[in-house]
């Protein structure tokens, strides 16, 4: 359709740069896995290359091959990853919250804790948190005071 022959070297270099970008995102996720303290922080780092790194490498492959049929084959890769990565991140985040594998002091807000306390689930880690974290605005009639799970 288009005559891409004069652009081939530029497109190849662009493909190489995009591949390096995807690899750097993967390296950032790996460094985050090692450096971050708890599971939810590591989950935040780990979800970066799943979408953006994959998109970069797929664009690099499309620029390198320069074929419309290949682009048609590469689209389901990105679409499937975009459909499934949020589900797995949600499930792992829920697992990390329920096993208490995070530091409650590092949270800006914990909206799930109020729901957990309202549901009467005192066995979950978020149940005893509103009374433990916010000393200034502690409600007097807090029903979730029996199990101080926070250290």
């Amino acid at each position: 359709m288009f005559d891409l022959e004069p652009w081939s070297s530029i497109l190849d270099i662009a493909a190489g740069v995009l591949v390096i970008g995807g690899a750097l995102l993967s390296l950032a996720a790996a460094v985050g896995l090692v450096r971050f303290p708890d599971a939810l922080s590591r989950l935040h780092a780990a979800t970066k290359p799943q979408i953006l790194g994959l998109i970069l490498v797929v664009i690099a492959l499309a620029l390198s091959v320069r074929n419309w049929a290949v682009l048609l084959l590469l689209t389901p890769v990105v679409v499937l990853q975009m459909l499934t990565a949020p589900i797995s991140a949600h499930m792992v985040g829920r697992a990390g919250y329920r096993t208490g594998d995070f530091d409650p002091d590092t949270l800006v807000t914990d909206e799930l804790a109020a729901d957990v306390a309202g549901a009467g689930r005192s066995d979950l880690p978020g149940a005893a948190e509103p009374s433990a974290r916010r000393e200034g605005e502690r409600p007097s009639a807090d029903p979730s005071g029996e199990t101080p799970a926070t250290p």
Binding site: S26, A29, G53, V58, V77
Partner: peptide, 15 residues
């Protein structure tokens, strides 16, 4: 993360 890296490796090898 390891599986995502593997997908990226497969794509990089094709490039």
């Amino acid at each position: 993360v390891l599986l995502t890296t593997l997908i990226l490796v497969v794509g990089t090898e094709m490039v």
